[in-house]
Design a protein around this nucleic acid. Sequence first.
DNA 1: TCCTATGCCTTTCCC
DNA 2: AGGCATAGGA
Length: 660
Amino acid sequence: MDLSELNDAQRRAVTAGDGPHLVVAGAGTGKTRTLVHRVAWLIEQGVPPEGIVLLTFTRRAAGEMLDRVARLVGGRARGVRGGTFHSFANTALRRHADRLGYSPSFTILDRGDAEALVGMVRGELGLGSTEQRYPKRGTLLDVLSRATNTHRTIAQVLDDQYPQYAHLEPDLQRLAVRYAERKQEQGVMDFDDLLVMLARLLRDHEEARRRLSHAARHVLVDEYQDTNRLQASIAALLSSVHGNLMVVGDEAQSIYGFRGADVRNILDFGQLYPNCPVTVLEENYRSVQPILDLANGILETATTGYDKHLRSSLPSQELPVLADVMDEHAQAEVVVRRVLELREGGTSLDEQAILARASHHTHLLELALSEAGIPFRKYGGLRFSEAAHIKDVFALLRLVANPRDVLAWFRVLSWSKGLGAKTAQRIGDSVAAADDPQLHPAAYKGRGYHADLVDLAGFLEDAAPLVADVGALVDLTIAYYKERIVDIHEDWKKRLKDLDSVPLLAERFTSLDQFLAEVALDPVEAADADEAVDDEVLTVSTIHSAKGLEWDAVHLVQLGDGAFPSAFSLDDPDELEEERRLFYVAVTRARRHLMLVWPRFVRARRGPVMGPGCVLLDTIPHLHDLLETVKPTRRPWSEGPQAADADEIERIARLLDYFD
DNA sequence: TCCTATGCCTTTCCC
DNA sequence: AGGCATAGGA
């Protein structure tokens, strides 16, 4: 293997000896390349590929890295175990589920399912029916989830995050206990359980730990700054036998605090492993210097001092552009024009991306792209597999895989007329509680929905023998569902064509459990379900989903207080810091061309129009030396403010002045 | 027990 | 704007 294309620091990390190792890698400093070479190097040194565990943040990242490893060492790379913490946990738990009181075909609950179950448990415990201002089920789940992921008690989480609900601690304790019992009874796990159970397996089950950790000769963790306490403990336990744990990350890019990620993991790694070697990668190979100057400027404004200064060997005369525009219409216009101009200049659509803080910030822009005939794929936001009709199909499949899955019963039963929430839950519960979990329609003779239950039981009977033939099972399920969709969704016509994408998704899978787990752990992006694939496509993505990726040209839209930074972060200094790091991540995705778009006038869904400020920009020292500001000529105010009040008219007038 | 109408309340990022 | 709880009639 050729190590000559690596710099000294990278080579040190790649060829490091055994033991723990921390790699601090600034944006664009060849972090991925280093990890890829490290894995390849280990294989060449004779480490069996199955002994290497590569934990990454997304499935996409894992796949990409293993492809690159394969280019260096060939087919041997296939043996490497790679994926997210959750997917690794899923695989390990299927093998050892019985030790934890679970069947190997347990079902994974996504966020929506988990909330629904919390809702059921809340009802069952009679919580919140009389009291006013009771937290919503999403909030309840959030409290439980934060407690698990950050290793804190419910009381602590309430204190820190939800002081207004501090008095509900006893309720939440009961809820937590019952919720856990319900999941166990039904053979379902939520995302957190995957991590909790894996940690429990590693801690409490001697034999399973031996099997798992003896196999893990080398553990490598990417994006370590975005791991939470639980994940860090898993990495430590997993590597405890051989002690070979290499973690790679950049504390300036920690952007998942909202999900319980803890920067302390990377900052305190040296305390956990005293004398652990540290390699710092500083040379940036990705971006031209003016882009890095801006990135450095952003870090300078951070209150947590990051001891980082990115430098590049790629000079450029082209400053990043700040498009100071009137509103979202002007934003769309300026972005479309820029995309086309760059393309004329040789930057293909594949090499361009539009990034935004929130998925909905690009709605108008997507319309404009379609109008202009620019093909794009959107990442982030609502997933294909989260659409109601797709979840319907998966509920049927889940019943085939795990007939104790009460949420799946609930969903499927509610399709029948005259069968409401109460009855659905009662039927689901009784099936789940039975020794031989099966639907017995005969018990409901005389009810209006009896015929539906007979049909459903018939379907499940026909489906049962097909578990091993995922393709045939999916076809049967879709056919069954298509007969019913007309009564379930008023707008069934536009939903119908999506159903035909499901068999395509299932194609790669030989096991139903695997298929269902995969869909839960890595929800299919709306973009990927579309069969119309142009060969040259622009990317539209949230910044979070763009983590770890890069493009020649990046167009970052919707800057402005309330949008980016998000309104929720404005009054909390810690959260504002996370917005800053997010801004930093966005900017450092760009190699050569960067445009920031700052619409001065954004109509919020409700409430006031957003003001013209943007703290992320305002606080950067010497901003105007770092950017080339353009103010496109104002387009005529064709839309006009509807029903504007006096305040709003005045604000608009001021803005208009500004632009003239 | 089910379904519909009404009014209130919140609103991000994701494995 | 849309989800969610509650009220009240069927």
